[in-house]
Structure formats: structure tokens, C-alpha cells
Amino acid sequence: MQYKQQIMSPHDIVILLKIVAYGKESWFQKPLAEALGISQSEVSKSLNRSKYAGLLDPTGKTVMKLALLEFLQFGLRYVFPQKPGPVVRGVPTSHSAPPLNEEIHSNEDYVWPYGKGTVRGHSIMPLYPTVPEAALRDEKLYELLALVDALRVGRVREREFAITALKNRFGLGE
């Protein structure tokens, strides 16, 4: 018997967040792949990994939001760690982007490196190279990705704000 281990990829999180951003709107793999700049075959493999991990329901259409939130809160920064890098031009993320930039004021900006970006700050490598472009085309996705980056690189205060905001966006608020 051959055994193949299912290992999550960083872009699996991006895909799950894009599905969450769709809300109740129905979605299909091809437009999802195009919106994220990820090949359709990679999206298909990602959906299978997420089903296997219990982050998508067995039909592959509904994100298991509580499970995803638990993974994001307790596992993400250990599985896909990131440390702020050199100052570059890019797209604001983490506490430097909405919605956290309304709650947290800092002298240091965090950005995803992006040549067409308008802000200079410490570089945070995105979960997938096409994240800056995809985020700029979809405000809901942008906020979700920025909140997730706050979980990856933020201090306790930023992570607490991010979890509360993610719960609200996932419809799991108290």
C-alpha cells in the first residue's frame, strides 16, 4: 500500500480566505484561480488538501470556519512563520492595513513587497506571490489576508484584535 502524506501549503490559506470572502455567493474553481493568479490544477489540489484537513466540508464548497479560525489562531504562525524584513515599497499588511490600522497606530509599517505599492515599510513575504495583486482587486480578501498576517507577525495585542475581527468576518462573533 502506498501512503501519500497531505501537507498544507501557504496558498491553501489564501484560497480558503478567498472562498470566505465570497460569502454566500456561489463560486467556481476557474474564476477563483483567475482571481488569485493560481493555476486551476493547484486550486484543485489545494481544495483536496483542505478537505482532507477538515477545513472544507466533504463537498469542497463550504469552509469550516471554526476549524479554519482555530488553525489560524493557534497554528499559522508556527507552520508558516514570517519575520519582518528590510524596508521596501509595497502594499500595507498586518497592523498597517485595514481594519487594524484604525485600532493600532505604529511608526513602523509592514508591507507585501510590490513594485506598484505606495507605502514603504518592513517587508512581509505574502503567503503566495500573487497576494498583493489579488488583494488590491478584492477589498474583503485584502482585509482577511492582512488580519492573517497580523497573526503571523503581530504581537499579542495585534493578534487579539485580528482574532476578534476574523471572528466577526467569519460570522462567528460573540
Rank of each mutant, 00 (worst) to 15 (best):
Y114S: 03
P31Q: 11
L56G: 08
Q2C: 11
A21Q: 01
A67M: 06
K24P: 01
Q29W: 06
L144S: 04
Y142L: 07
V111T: 05
A67I: 02
N101M: 12
L66Q: 14
F28T: 05
R49I: 08
K167D: 03
R77D: 08
I15T: 09
E139W: 14
A134V: 11
S26K: 14
A33S: 13
Q82E: 12
T118H: 06
M8N: 04
L69K: 01
K51F: 06
S26V: 12
V88S: 02
S106A: 00
P81I: 06
R120V: 14
Y114C: 03
G171M: 04
G37N: 12
Q82M: 11
L68M: 14
A146D: 04
M8K: 11
G37W: 14
S9A: 08
P58A: 11
S44P: 01
W27R: 13
M125W: 03
G117D: 00
L147T: 03
E70M: 01
G54N: 13
E108D: 11
E160D: 13
I15V: 12
L144E: 02
G54I: 15
L172T: 14
Q5A: 08
L69G: 03
G90V: 02
D109M: 07
H11V: 05
P84T: 09
L136Q: 09
N107G: 00
F80R: 05
Y128S: 05
G90A: 09
E25T: 15
T62H: 15
Y114D: 00
D109S: 10
L172V: 13
P132G: 10
R120T: 15
D109F: 10
D149N: 12
Q2A: 15
A97H: 07
L166I: 00
V148T: 12
L76P: 05
L17Q: 08
A53Q: 10
R77P: 01
K61M: 12
T164D: 04
G37M: 15
L56I: 13
Y52G: 03
R169S: 00
E103G: 01
Y142P: 01
E34N: 13
Y114Q: 08
K83L: 10
L145C: 01
D149G: 00
R49T: 09
R152S: 04
K116C: 00
Q73N: 14
R159K: 14
P10R: 11
R159Y: 04
E34K: 14
V131S: 02
A53R: 08
N101T: 04
K140P: 09
P113Y: 05
G115F: 02
S46A: 06
V156I: 13
E174D: 14
L69T: 07
E133A: 15
L17A: 06
N48D: 10
R159C: 11
W27E: 12
E70Q: 11
Y114H: 08
G75H: 15
A146W: 00
G154R: 05
K45C: 10
P31H: 12
Q82W: 06
A33H: 07
L141Q: 07
F80V: 10
E70S: 15
P129T: 12
R155I: 13
R159F: 06
P113G: 01
I15G: 00
K65L: 12
V43A: 00
P132V: 06
G85Y: 04
V63E: 07
L56W: 03
L76H: 11
I19H: 01
